[in-house]
């Protein structure tokens, strides 16, 4: 199975990370800075970054800690988003209903598909998660009453007890930031918990785990459900941010992008997923503003990053730091 930087030890416990705290502080200050510029553009962009950061966190949790490389995680994002859209089409917009529903739907999908996917491993696992992602994609495309291939516009952003709390972009921004911080802290706690210890151990040596007395499959399935629900949460937020939902959210390219974001930032670090989502989306946005043919630059850049920056941006930063501290 895939094992990047296999000799890197797993830290025993979470430590307070100044860099991460700083990152969240910067995110909290963005709206104030944005007020001096194209406010709604900046808020929209960074909200999207944070939404995908939540989805990337889920992928890092699976890949980086559980060794389960999923190539279909966009399906969970899509499920969460479609739950909001479909409920909205039936006049239900209150998040006290739609948010739990989005989480339950994606968790249930994770439970069922995980039961099947986790029988396989390695490349076969990658491909079977892709298969379920594609199934979800085609089902969404066939939902004629809800826009089919074209997608569907939300009647309104989610409300809370009837109040339009997501009414302005800034409120949605801070809500998304709150969910991101909570997701990050949750993932971090889970990784270091008793469960997380078993989950990480299953990645290292499933046979050994079984002879110690762990039913590896069940633990991995719980992990898969956690990651699936996080994907659903990202979907709930994405639907609100875009006020629009379409099958394109679930395409295999989207799932691939989530993996790339995680690797961009550095696998198995959690905050790397956030850094990765931000750098990926901002890079895309920046290059697109530069030239129409930005993909001619973006593509080779991915190749170069793989060839020359092992361990992602976080790894790169660490090796640079190590070089300086040695002098």
């Amino acid at each position: 199975m895939t094992s990047l930087a296999a000799d890197k030890p797993v830290p025993r416990a979470a430590r307070f990370n100044v860099g991460v705290a700083l990152m969240f502080a910067v995110l909290a200050l963005v709206p104030f800075a944005a007020a001096f510029g194209p406010e709604s553009y900046v808020l929209g962009l960074v909200t999207r970054v944070m939404v995908f950061a939540i989805a990337a966190l889920a992928v890092d949790f699976l890949c980086g800690f559980g060794g389960l490389v999923t190539f279909g995680h966009a399906a969970f994002v899509g499920l969460g988003a479609y739950t909001v859209a479909i409920a909205g089409a039936h006049g239900v917009t209150d998040m006290t209903v739609t948010l739990p529903l989005a989480l339950i739907v994606s968790a249930a999908f994770a439970y069922v598909t995980g039961t099947i996917c986790l029988r396989t491993n390695g490349v076969y696992f990658i491909m079977i998660t892709l298969a379920f992602g594609q199934m979800a994609y085609f089902i969404a495309g066939s939902l004629a009453p809800y826009g089919g291939d074209d997608g569907i516009t939300l009647p309104t952003r989610s409300t809370l007890f009837g109040l339009a709390v997501f009414g302005n972009d800034r409120a949605l921004y801070y809500a998304t930031l709150g969910f991101l911080v909570a997701s990050y802290l949750l993932c971090r706690a889970v990784v270091y918990s008793r469960f997380g210890r078993v989950f990480r151990g299953a990645r290292e040596n499933p046979t050994r785990m079984a002879t110690i007395g762990y039913d590896v499959f069940r633990y991995q399935r719980v992990g898969y459900v956690i990651a699936g629900s996080l994907g659903g949460l990202a979907g709930f937020l994405l639907a609100n941010a875009a006020e629009f939902v379409s099958p394109a959210y679930m395409s295999w390219q989207r799932s691939g992008e989530l993996i790339i974001m995680v690797l961009f930032g550095g696998l198995g670090t959690l905050y790397g997923a956030i850094v990765g989502a931000a750098s990926y989306l901002l890079l895309e946005e920046g290059l697109a503003g530069l030239t129409e043919n930005w993909k001619l630059i973006f593509g080779p850049l991915l190749v170069i990053i793989v060839l020359f920056a092992r361990g992602g941006l976080v790894g790169l930063a660490a090796s640079v730091r190590a070089r300086f501290s040695r002098d």
Partner: peptide, 12 residues
């Protein structure tokens, strides 16, 4: 004990 404990750090 159970290994389905999700929040408390095991190393502690």
């Amino acid at each position: 004990g159970s290994s389905y404990s999700f929040l408390r750090p095991a190393a502690a």
